[in-house]
Structure formats: C-alpha cells, structure tokens
Computed example of a mutant assay.
Amino acid sequence: MEKLVYRSSLSGRIASLIDVGFGTFRGFVRLVLGELAFVGGGLRPFVQIRPREVKRLVFVCLGNINRSAFGHAVADKLGAQVASLGLSTTTGAPAFEKAIAAAPVYGIDLGAHRATDFTDFRYQPGDLLLAMEVRHVHELIRRGIPADAIALLGHWSRPHRIHIHDPHLHTDQYFRTCFAIIHSAVANLVEELRLGESPCLSKK
C-alpha cells in the first residue's frame, strides 16, 4: 500500500513539474530535442545575429495571441522597433484572456493587442524574425523568409530554452513560466542589440 501511494505521489509530482515547467510532456520532449540539436551545432545559423543589420524585431508564433504578442509588447517597452505575427491565425484577433491576465506582472497590458496573420505581414530588409520553436523556423523558410533573417528567441533566455512551448489552453502556472522565459529572452536580446549599436533601438 505504501509503495502504491509513493508511486502515485511521485507520478503526480512529475506531472506537476512537467505542467509548470514545460506545459506538456510533448513540450518537454521538444525542448530536449531542440537542445540536443543546439548542442550538436545544427541550430547555429539561428542563434547568431548581426546587431547593426537589425532594423526591426518581429516575434513569431502560431496565433500571435500569446507568446509573440507578449514578446512584441516587452520589446516595445524596451524601446525596440517591433512587430509580430502568427503563422496560423486571424488578423485582428485579440490576445488570449490568460495572456492578458498574466502580462501585468511585467508591467505589460495586452488589452489592445490585435493579431496579424503571416499573409498580412510584409517582410522588410533588416527584419529579424524571432521564432519560438524550431518548426517555426522551417515554416518561415518554406514561406520565403531568408534563413539569415530568422533566430530562435529562446536562445537568449536564462535558463536557456531553445523551444518555448505554446501555453494556449494550458494552466495559469505554465503561462507564468512561459512569459518569464520570453521576458528574459527579450531583455537579454535587446541588451545584446544595444551593445551592438543596432538601429532597431533608435526609437528611444
């Protein structure tokens, strides 16, 4: 009986850690695979930037109502020229209610955010598209975005998170984790761009 209770408690603890830290077990697996690809050098082209060539930061996810919406707002607050888009969304859609609720911890208001679908986005030379997932990188390339204009945002997060799993329809706890990762990544990236005298930070 004690062993059964212990196993149940342990499995519950693991499930809780996955939920809070990674969203889902799939999110954890994608993170591990992404980190392995990073360590192996396969993602090197997408973790290097040339600050003086970056004129605008463009945050990318699927719906542009959670992750990229928040990254957009954080970078804007830090003085960057910024935009965001979703690879599969409806232009004009508002931020998700859980995203709106989680953002004020960082002094961010997503109430006025409206999504932009990729089909309504116009790439400009000097754009740096910041993807949340490795599969987003491949999709952007497939849709014609130059590979050297794409980077994985999570590379700048501390702790390092090459894969930032979608929090949509997951718990409030994972929303907070996800936004903490994005906030860290954006702050570190903007500082690197500032030190590199990037023109995308000429706004403020």
Rank of each mutant, 00 (worst) to 15 (best):
E2L: 13
E2G: 01
E2D: 11
K3D: 11
L4F: 10
L4R: 13
V5C: 00
L10V: 15
S11H: 08
S11D: 12
S16T: 10
I18Y: 03
V20E: 12
T24M: 05
R30N: 15
G34S: 06
E35D: 08
L36K: 04
A37M: 12
V39A: 08
G40A: 12
G41I: 09
G41D: 06
L43K: 04
P45K: 06
R50K: 11
E53S: 14
L57H: 01
F59D: 03
L62I: 14
G63Q: 12
N64V: 11
I65R: 14
S68V: 10
H72I: 07
D76I: 01
L78H: 02
A80E: 04
V82I: 15
S84I: 15
S84G: 14
S84D: 12
L87Y: 11
S88E: 10
S88M: 12
F96I: 09
F96V: 12
E97W: 14
E97Q: 12
I100S: 01
I100R: 15
I100D: 02
A101M: 07
A101K: 14
A101R: 15
I108N: 12
G111Q: 09
A112W: 12
H113N: 13
H113L: 14
T116C: 10
T116Q: 14
F118S: 04
D120A: 13
Y123N: 03
D127A: 01
D127M: 02
L129W: 04
L129M: 07
L129Y: 02
V134W: 00
R135Y: 07
H136W: 03
H138R: 08
E139I: 06
E139S: 02
P146G: 06
A147R: 11
A149P: 01
A151Q: 04
H160L: 15
H160C: 05
H160D: 00
I164C: 00
D166E: 08
Q173P: 00
T177M: 10
F179S: 04
A180T: 13
A180Y: 03
H183Y: 06
H183G: 00
A185K: 00
A185V: 01
A185T: 01
A185I: 02
V186M: 06
V186G: 08
V186H: 03
A187C: 10
N188W: 11
E191I: 03
E192A: 07
R194Q: 04
G196C: 07
E197P: 00
S198W: 05
C200V: 14
L201Y: 10
K203M: 07
